[in-house]
């Protein structure tokens, strides 16, 4: 009995999970983590749709598995890395038009309409940022503002001073800023999406 494309994809996905780890729970965890890492890697290498590239990498491995290919490796990430490099090479060899579509706005021809949109967009950004900053506790808000107002050409000195003031190690401060920034960025993105 012939199976349709959707069923084939499901089979491939299950085969991939089995290959990642015989324990399904562990496999699912591995899949989520590796997909995230892979997408970030594709982004760093200039893939325009990193999530798609990561999907494609896993789809290919899944397809190879259901076709009967036996992939023996001590560390699946090495094999995934190899397949990912192939996917990347194919992305790069695609027509240039796709890249032009995703060029930064400032690199595209300018017109008055665009400038007006950019101005409105900037106002929306600031409005959402202000709203979101107000939701942060006073201390966190002050910490972020101090961090962003600092002279970043002397950041080592400035950050060690800030860390000293807070009574924490520089690494802890860096991690705290990272989490606060992420939280605030998420809030702004939600606000902008409304």
């Amino acid at each position: 009995m012939a199976i349709d494309r959707s069923q084939q994809q499901d089979l491939a996905f299950h085969a991939l999970l089995d290959w990642l780890n015989p324990n399904r729970d562990r496999a699912a965890d591995d899949y989520v983590r590796l997909h995230r890492r892979l997408a970030k890697m594709f982004e760093a290498r200039g893939c325009l749709t990193p999530e798609d590239c990561a999907d494609e990498t896993f789809n290919r491995i899944g397809s190879q598995l259901i076709e009967g290919k036996e992939i023996r490796t001590d560390n699946p990430t090495f094999y995934i890395n190899g397949v990912a490099r192939h996917v990347l090479l194919e992305q790069w060899s695609k027509p240039v038009q796709e890249q032009i579509e995703d060029l930064p706005a400032e690199k595209l021809p300018q017109d008055n309409h665009r400038e007006l949109n950019e101005k409105q967009e900037k106002e929306r950004w600031h409005s959402c940022l202000e709203k979101c900053l107000q939701t942060l506790p006073q201390e966190s808000r002050q910490l972020l503002l101090e961090y962003y107002a600092e002279d970043k050409t002397q950041k080592i000195e400035t950050r060690s001073r800030m860390a000293k003031q807070l009574g924490v190690a520089a690494g802890v401060l860096r991690n705290r800023i990272f989490k606060l920034r992420n939280s605030l960025r998420g809030c702004v993105a939600t606000c902008l999406a409304r």
Partner: peptide, 21 residues
């Protein structure tokens, strides 16, 4: 800056820097 997600992050950082200054 080829990544659209990074450009969004830059927009955030720019707005935040202006606000902080």
């Amino acid at each position: 800056l080829r990544s659209s997600e990074r450009r969004e992050k830059l927009a955030f950082a720019t707005a935040m820097t202006e606000r902080a200054v």
